[in-house]
Computed example of a mutant assay.
Amino acid sequence: MQFVFWQNIISIHQSTFLSTLSNRHSILLVVEQRLDQERKGDGWSIPDMGKTKIIVAPDDKTIDNLILENKDAVHVFSGINAFPMVYKAFKKVVALDLKILVYVEPYVWFGIKGFFRRLKYMALNLCYGKNIDGLLVTGQTGRRCFLKAGFEKSKIFDWGYFTAQRAFNEGAISNENRQKPAILYVGRIDCNKNILSLVDICLKHVGKYACLDIIGAGPLTDLLIKKIDRAEDIKYLGSKTNNEVLDLMCRYDILVLPSLYDGWGAVVNEALQNGMRVIASENCGASVLLDGKDRGEAFSFVNKEKSLEKILLKWLEKGTVSLADRQNIAEWTRYSISGDSVAAYFEKICSCISGDCTHNEVIAPWLS
């Protein structure tokens, strides 16, 4: 089969999926730019995309030619109207009535802003819903959001972001004979990521964990540094590249992602691939990867019995992650969120939109 992916950037969160898919099919990736400044600031670099052919910043004539040359392909878009070049190509593909899949993250669904966002997607559904063959939604919140906006249930498929599987390095694992778990946070230092709430909880429960190390940068960095100035067990490690973060993960037991909102949260994938347990907000798409038993658990902003504080204390009581548990967690990711498993699932989605199987037969490997 032929696939054309229209995206804003060359994303590390799609690289392992597209690289694997390119070994089986003809893949063309068309992007507005290689990387944006925010991602460069987050330590991203251009990932290996395998046999995928990449075109950067095409002009209008090139977009027209690419579409005409790939009329038999399935065209996959990052959002509907989120990015100018992607939206331009989307409307041209709609006009030719070609096969269309769309990646979408949940929109902000609460408050006045959420009301108008829902109206926006209701309008987009009225305009384009009949032309979209499948909507690839991130997390359970994404599914709820687009059902409420009126998109057909039979066209909605679970999706996520996927990171490259690295060899599990047992020799790099070190808990320094700790008796208490080590906590890691990786992400922006801002209000949405809610890192200061995590710090406040840890300051309240000193002695129940070995350390909380924080990696990232953002507008609240100075306030964070001031808050932890006298804390012996909480350290701010500054910004690090993605590879540096991955090398460090084997040293920690629990990753915490306390975001108020996260379309997915690929750092959850990376932590699980390194055998860490994860605590993430229920508003984080990747919380669907957590089982509440072995891999970690989602906390709630609404249910006080499942607050961040209570869930964190529950998992701290479990102690450090043993080598056997770490191996089991990492092994689960190999058959649930690896490039091979996701590529096979994507092929199943394409079979469904072509009428070769039913919607009920298409189940995401991380949910099966």
Score class of each variant (00 low, 15 high):
Trp315Met: 09
Lys71Ala: 06
Val267Ala: 04
Trp264Ser: 04
Ile214Gln: 09
Ala330Trp: 10
Ile183Met: 05
Ile112Asp: 12
Leu312Trp: 15
Ala73Thr: 05
Ala330Ile: 07
Glu309Tyr: 08
Leu126Asp: 06
Val206Glu: 15
Gly160Ser: 12
Arg166Asn: 10
Ala95Met: 09
Ala231Pro: 02
Cys202Gly: 03
Asp253Leu: 13
Glu176Pro: 00
Ile337Gln: 05
Leu220Asp: 13
Ile363Arg: 06
Glu170Lys: 13
Phe146Thr: 01
Gly216Arg: 06
Gly114Asp: 09
Cys145Pro: 02
Ser300Gln: 14
Asn328Lys: 15
Thr138Cys: 06
His205Met: 10
Leu198Ala: 12
Leu220Pro: 00
Ser197Gly: 11
Ile234Ser: 08
Trp6Ser: 02
Tyr121Trp: 12
Ser351Asp: 15
Tyr121Ser: 02
Leu203Ile: 05
Asp60Pro: 00
Cys352Lys: 04
Trp6Ala: 00
Val342Ala: 06
Leu66Asn: 09
Arg144His: 12
Lys306Val: 02
Ala73Gln: 04
Cys202Glu: 08
Leu290Ala: 04
Asp42Ala: 13
Arg144Phe: 12
Ser78Asp: 15
Val102Gln: 00
Gln165Met: 12
Ile279Phe: 11
Leu289Val: 07
Val104Arg: 10
Arg295Trp: 13
Thr141Glu: 10
Ile189Thr: 09
Glu297Ser: 09
Ile80Gln: 01
Asp64His: 08
Glu32Gln: 15
Lys193Pro: 04
Ala364Leu: 04
Ile156Asp: 07
Phe77Lys: 03
Ser338Tyr: 05
His75Asn: 03
Cys211Pro: 03
Ser307His: 09
Ser45Trp: 07
Pro106Asp: 05
Arg295Ala: 14
Gln140Asp: 11
Lys120His: 15
Ser307Gln: 05
Ile337Cys: 05
Ser259Asn: 07
Ala217Cys: 03
Leu101Thr: 01
Asp213Arg: 02
Thr333Val: 02
Tyr161Gln: 10
Arg251Phe: 12
Val76Gln: 04
Arg118Glu: 15
His25Val: 02
Glu305Trp: 08
Phe168Gly: 01
Val342Cys: 01
Ile10Phe: 02
Tyr107Lys: 07
Asp247Arg: 10
Pro106Asn: 06
Met1Ala: 09
Pro58Arg: 01
Arg143Pro: 00
Leu198Glu: 11
Thr20Glu: 08
Gly292His: 14
Val94Tyr: 04
Asn131Thr: 03
Asp356Ser: 11
Leu255Arg: 07
Asn283Lys: 12
Gly41Tyr: 14
Leu367Arg: 15
Lys348Gln: 14
Val86Lys: 01
Pro181Tyr: 11
Asn274Ser: 07
Lys310Tyr: 14
Lys71Leu: 11
Thr141Ile: 11
Ser336Phe: 06
Asn70Val: 00
Gly129Trp: 05
Ala286Asn: 10
Trp44Val: 01
His13Thr: 08
His75Phe: 03
Val108Thr: 10
Val93Gly: 00
Asp356Gln: 14
Lys304Ser: 15
Val93Ile: 04
Lys155Phe: 04
Pro365Cys: 01
Asp356Lys: 15
Gly319Met: 13
Cys284Asp: 11
Gln33Asn: 08
Val104Gly: 00
Tyr121Ile: 01
Gly319Arg: 14
Leu96Arg: 10
Val108Ile: 15
Lys235Gly: 05
Tyr121Leu: 04
Trp44Phe: 14
Arg295Ile: 09
